[in-house]
């Protein structure tokens, strides 16, 4: 079985802020990390590998050269192979252009039985690349997967979270899943895998290796364009209530009534 895990390197979003004075992004001290949800995607793949010994796990990422850090991390946790998809032409990609590029890479890695993605990336939060990638590759998919098991060699039984509960699906392979944290606690790096990762030369694929036209990827290949970036409107000045507990209770009640909170 061949499993491809799609990873993304993201800025630690809690630290990304716009300076209110200059209206610019403050980048000081913002580290790049593996998208937290992708740890669970990797863990899901490695869990399958634990049980099915003939499994190969390939980690891929698209990003600038330093994105290879997240591939090293994946190798250190037990991924067998890693591919960095990196080239100037890929910059500025929206979710379509990203999915299109990842699809081209996965076609080169075929046969691929299962593609695993995190539920979304914390920088964009779109949750689009998984479904778009599956659609471009004409594979069935399931999003928000909490747990899965093999029914037989070519079918998964998955449980996906919905807004009101869960749905249980039978999903034929080859397929794609986007997973939730419920699939398992990410395992730590192992000593042996880390040593191997250090010697591992990560191949870098550009448009030429993928066989794609430079105009169909990156900003040029994107259907959406970001026309403006700005700070969210600052919340109305917050009101700190003062006085005794009784006074604060009365005041809060008054304000919530004024804000037309239902039920009051």
């Amino acid at each position: 079985m061949h499993i491809v895990v799609c990873l993304k390197q993201v800025p630690e979003s809690q630290n990304v802020r716009i300076d209110p004075k200059t209206n610019t992004l403050i980048r000081q001290g913002v580290a790049s990390v593996l998208n937290p949800f992708d740890y669970f995607a990797l863990e899901a793949a490695l869990t399958i590998k634990d049980e099915r010994l003939d499994t190969k796990v390939t980690a891929i990422t698209m990003g600038p050269p330093q994105a290879k850090e997240v591939l090293m991390d994946a190798l250190s946790r037990g991924a067998d192979d890693a591919i960095l998809i990196s080239h100037r032409a890929f910059a500025g990609a929206d979710t379509w252009a990203t999915s299109f590029t990842l699809a081209a890479a996965i076609r080169r890695l075929e046969p691929v039985d299962l593609i695993v993605c995190g539920k979304q990336a914390i920088d964009g939060d779109t949750a689009q690349v998984g479904p778009e990638l599956a659609t471009i590759l004409n594979r069935p998919y399931a999003t928000y997967v909490k747990s899965f098991e093999f029914v037989d060699d070519s079918h998964l039984k998955i449980t996906r979270q919905t807004d009101e509960g869960v749905a249980v699906w039978r999903l034929p392979l080859p397929a794609l899943v986007t997973v939730l944290k419920d699939v398992g606690e990410p395992r730590p790096r192992s000593y042996r895998a880390t040593l191997r990762a250090r010697r591992y030369e990560i191949p870098v694929w550009g448009p030429e290796e993928l066989g794609v036209d430079e105009d169909s990827v990156g900003l040029k290949g994107s259907y959406t364009q970001v026309v403006r970036i700005f700070s969210p409107e600052r919340k109305k000045d917050r009101i700190m209530l003062r006085g005794s507990v009784e006074e604060m209770v009365d005041e809060l009640y008054y304000w919530l009534k004024e804000q037309r909170v239902p039920g009051l």
Binding site: S13, I122, D125, Q225, V226, R228, S231, P232
Partner: peptide, 11 residues
């Protein structure tokens, strides 16, 4: 985007 710290307008 970025956990709500930044807004983006898109066409």
């Amino acid at each position: 985007a970025f956990g709500g710290n930044i807004m983006a307008s898109i066409l």
